[in-house]
Nucleic acid binder design. Sequence first.
RNA 1: GGAAGAGUGGCAGAGCUGGUUGAUUGCACCGGUCUUGAAAACCGGCGUACCUGAGAGGGUACCGGGGGUUCGAAUCCCUCCUCUUCCGCCA
Length: 426
Amino acid sequence: MIEISIIREEKERLIAGLKKKNVSDQQLASVDNIILEDDKRKATQTNLDNLLFKINTISDEIGGLFKAGKAQEANDLKAQVATLKEETKVLEQSLKESKDLIEEWIIQLPNIPHHSVPVGFKAEDNEVFKAWNEDMPDLGENPLPHWELAEKFNLISFKDGVKLTGAGFPVYKGKGARLQRALINFFLDEATTAGYQEIQPPLVVNKESALATGQLPDKEGQMYHCEKDDFYLIPTAEVPLTNLYRDVILNKSDFPIKLTGYTPCFRREAGSYGSDVKGLNRLHQFDKIEIVQMQHPDHSYDTLMDMVTHVESLLNKLELPYRILRLCGGDMSFNSALTFDFETYSAAQGRWLEVSSVSNFETFQSNRMKLRFRDEDGKTKLAHTLNGSALALARIVATLLENHQTPEGIKIPNALQPYTGFAIIN
RNA sequence: GGAAGAGUGGCAGAGCUGGUUGAUUGCACCGGUCUUGAAAACCGGCGUACCUGAGAGGGUACCGGGGGUUCGAAUCCCUCCUCUUCCGCCA
């Protein structure tokens, strides 16, 4: 949620940023409405406060009069307060309406993109921040797609997943299951070495948490919802990890906060279809290791690049061809100010698959979360939050299988072998 | 799931027969005096948000969340949440 102070004080930058994110003219117009309504809110607050001050003063007087035995005078004042109280009710109602209206408008505004974000509407407009300049692995004449490899080596059963649950819930078996576990441990170890504290959070969260990180109301339909308890299955570990710092005031010396966690992620993926959902490309449940940081506003973009470097090192160790994209305004998520996507090449499918997304949210999440820090001047300010996948398993497994297939079988990258306990799948 | 008790400022812990209580006190923390330095002692400061003001300052709200009674509530009532203990159930 954008800070009201930015809307009031940096309107030009806000409008320019919203245009980059391709928001509608109607939404652009809401900016002026927000400011007008906020003016009204302030005036109402002033009036209400003054009125309450009067009532408080009179109430004190009444107390004194009763003690002095002047019941008659006290009763006169009581009548006076009764009228004033009627007025406060009107003002309170008006104040609530203003606040609700402002919130309703403001919550629909996406984050302001960083100045480096390219202008654009769709995936083709993303900037290739780092291309893959080396040779692609030589996979021979007819490389198999991962779903065929998975079947050939009995690693994953999509059919059993359908039996147990439905499409998009694969069952990993034998070396396939072991490969998953190996990747999880590998990624967690790498994150821990990089200074992230490992967290095992709940996999279901309440409404407050989903609101704070921005999944609600934006992605209401994308989350699995337990009606009875009003809980949501997490679509990413970002939600519980970031929410650990909801309503927290940090000291400047606490920065940076670095968290990592492995969790399954649950996504309804309503509206997806076709080759998008083939094999491991898009699942309802997949495993992911997330890295999250809370950082001082002055350093958050350095931190973003550190996270990019971390993810890059993982892909290098897994010996996968990858590229890094700087997302354009139209392709970025609602919450983000700057996002780098990582894609690995799926040779058999002839397409790039997104395996990580690293973003700086600046104060967009912390504003709603009330994650603050005490600055040198003693004032509280909003911290910056960042997160990224490091990494998302299913698609890594897909490209791992495809890129490392040989006539002898699927070779396991050296870095992963201590974790799998085997060097080849055949 | 049932019964009883409890939720107060960073922590500990008063207040809870309603009225100068944003809230006694201790610890922690920050500043100062003293000291070669430190400790101790003493003095002072020490919550968050919002409104207002150039500023100093003034005001409002907040004692788990929400609602109510009252001229006035941390204090009374209702409701929800959480914790503790006992019972039941159970990986």
